[in-house]
Amino acid sequence: MATVPVGTALPTASPHPDRALDTRPSVRRRRWSRRRAANAVYWGACAAALAGVAAPVVWVLAGVVNSGLRDWHWSVLTTQTVGTGGGLLNAIAGTLVIVVGVAVIVGIVGIAGGIYLAEFCPEGRGGLLRGGSEILSGAPSIVLGYVGYVTLVVRFHWGFSLAAALAVLSVMVVPYVVKATEVSLRSVPTAYRDGSEALGMPSGYALRRVVLRPALPGIVTGLIVAMAIAVGETAPLLYTAGWSNNLPTAHLFHAPIAYLTYPVWTFYNQPYASAHRLAAVAALLLVVLALLMIVVSRIIVAVTQRHSETSSAPH
């Protein structure tokens, strides 16, 4: 693009002094400074873009923390919601139950699915399965919630229930775990498999004892991401989980369950200061939970990378 074979330019005769052919020193200097300026503008724009990413993070977090802590009482964590006041113990407990339930379901289905795609699926044949899972992750959350409502809650008579909530949320986040598992397993060197095979291990045994182990941090990270998303979802839960002022019960069906995103969406429109406070505190708790999970996943990544670096160093 800017490569000009030396000697082909006619310094004074060029009809287009801006063109690359013009190599008069003054023109080249001017052009160079213009290119430098364009470059500076470019990097300036990039820096502005970075600021454009950082600013909303800071703004949102500051706003959430500020309004959440404005009149913070620890009793929010220990008392149940009474109407639009009280605490959020029921919602915190409900969210934890939902997240643990989702983690169990998705942990089984997602990891198993990822193992199949990475280990058993014949090369070039898993496209449909893999694609199906990836595309599922693009389905709008409200569509999942809607279908959950009309089929599970109404048609199957599950009512507002933990079961309906778990089913819808699990469908929503299972692609994350499938993907994480597959990617982690594929990044385990083939030598591991070859080695265990050379030792005469059955591949199921080798998978469990040799291949899965190095892939585990990645799988756990994917699982944590899935849990973080489950914590923050609203649309799929509004019409499946319902809401309850009480602590979660042992009933899977016909027992509405509380969750933290509900007060944010519902209470900010209520006429009471207590409701607004709960909405603000719930938003704060949601952000803290989500960030906590991200930090945990980061720590897992960091620790395992350091570990694998040191352990591979002697070789």
């Binding site: 809650v153 109404v154 009512g159 507002f160 019409y239 809401w243 309850s244 002022n245 519902t266 209520q270």
Partner: peptide, 19 residues
């Protein structure tokens, strides 16, 4: 146990026997 989900949901849930 109370919940504010909107009148339509209230009617539908009562009709379905869910609340």
């Amino acid at each position: 146990t109370t919940a504010g989900t909107g009148s339509g949901t209230g009617i539908a849930q009562a009709a379905a026997g869910a609340v």
